[in-house]
């Protein structure tokens, strides 16, 4: 019974990984016409990936989803808007501020700003710029989850907010310095990590199924969308504030 369950999970994970293996093998053998280097390493790595993915999905069902929904329900039952919104903001801010991908992007962005002679090349000003960028992204993700939670509670339709956000992004693109635009657009994508996404999704769905008159499908989703839109606006805003 348990072995068949484990076997099924492993098989699922293998299916998830299969496209990557096929693509790499195709390009390596057919296009670049080179043998696959270090087959042993590659196979061992693929094995780890499959095992890891099965364990992760099992953990999602057991831990991450239930805790997210339990928190949403407990906070909704407590009935305090202040604490619910504080939790939302803290979740967004704290999971983003130490995100390694974000730290990497911010220091890269500082290099670019320095090359574009927007900031001087001393180490202190580079560090300051990267830190400011990181803080504005983390703050914007916190605010995004907060707005998303407010939307679920009040039942605002999501498309007005998102389309409004798009218009702001486009308007800011016109006036923002060009060195920051590419980074701003990418910042939206890198902020949401693999552990945050399931937790935030469970939080939204849990809240929408607790509040009367909200549908989990219509209102529960959408938090991630805010978390990838708002950082764009804030990063361009930071650019304007510093250079404008």
């Amino acid at each position: 019974m348990i072995t068949s369950l484990i076997f099924k999970k492993l098989k699922n994970a293998l299916t998830d990984l299969l496209p990557i293996i096929l693509v790499i093998a195709f390009f390596q053998i057919v296009v670049l016409k080179q043998p696959l280097p270090q087959m042993g390493d590659v196979l061992f790595g693929a094995l780890l990936v499959v095992a890891g993915l099965s364990l992760f999905v099992q953990g999602l069902e057991m831990g991450l989803f239930p805790i997210g929904e339990a928190m949403a329900q407990a906070l909704a039952r407590k009935g305090s808007l202040f604490w619910l919104l504080s939790f939302a903001f803290a979740l967004g801010f704290s999971t983003t501020v130490a995100e390694p991908a974000l730290i990497a992007v911010c220091s890269e962005a500082a290099e670019i700003a320095c090359q574009g002679e927007l900031i001087d090349s001393s180490r202190e000003s580079l560090r300051q710029y990267a830190f400011g960028l990181r803080m504005s992204v983390a703050f914007s993700v916190g605010l995004a989850i907060l707005i998303g939670i407010m939307r679920i509670i009040r039942g605002w339709p999501i498309h007005y907010l998102i389309i409004g956000g798009y218009v702001v992004v486009m308007l800011m693109t016109i006036i923002a310095p060009k060195e920051i635009i590419g980074i701003a657009y990418d910042a939206g994508g890198v902020t949401t990590s693999t552990i945050t996404v399931p937790l935030v999704t469970a939080l939204g769905v849990g809240l929408a199924s607790t509040i009367r008159g909200r549908s989990p499908l219509l209102d529960g989703f959408g938090l991630i969308a805010f978390a990838s839109l708002l950082p764009m606006i804030f990063v361009m805003g930071y650019g304007l504030l510093i250079f404008g």
Binding site: I20, I24, Q28, L36, P37, D41, V42, L43, F44, G45, A46, L47, L48, V49, V50, A51, G52, L53, S54, L55, F56, V57, Q58, G59, L60, E61, M62, G63, L64, P66, I67, A70, T194, I195
Partner: peptide, 26 residues
């Protein structure tokens, strides 16, 4: 929930280690 959380962390670490080992360099 705690067991699930441990699974998530170990699973993700294995997953990333495997990617670093096999697929990313290639």
């Amino acid at each position: 929930v705690i067991v699930g959380g441990v699974y998530v962390v170990i699973g993700l670490a294995l997953f990333l280690a495997g990617l670093e080992k096999a697929l990313f360099p290639l």
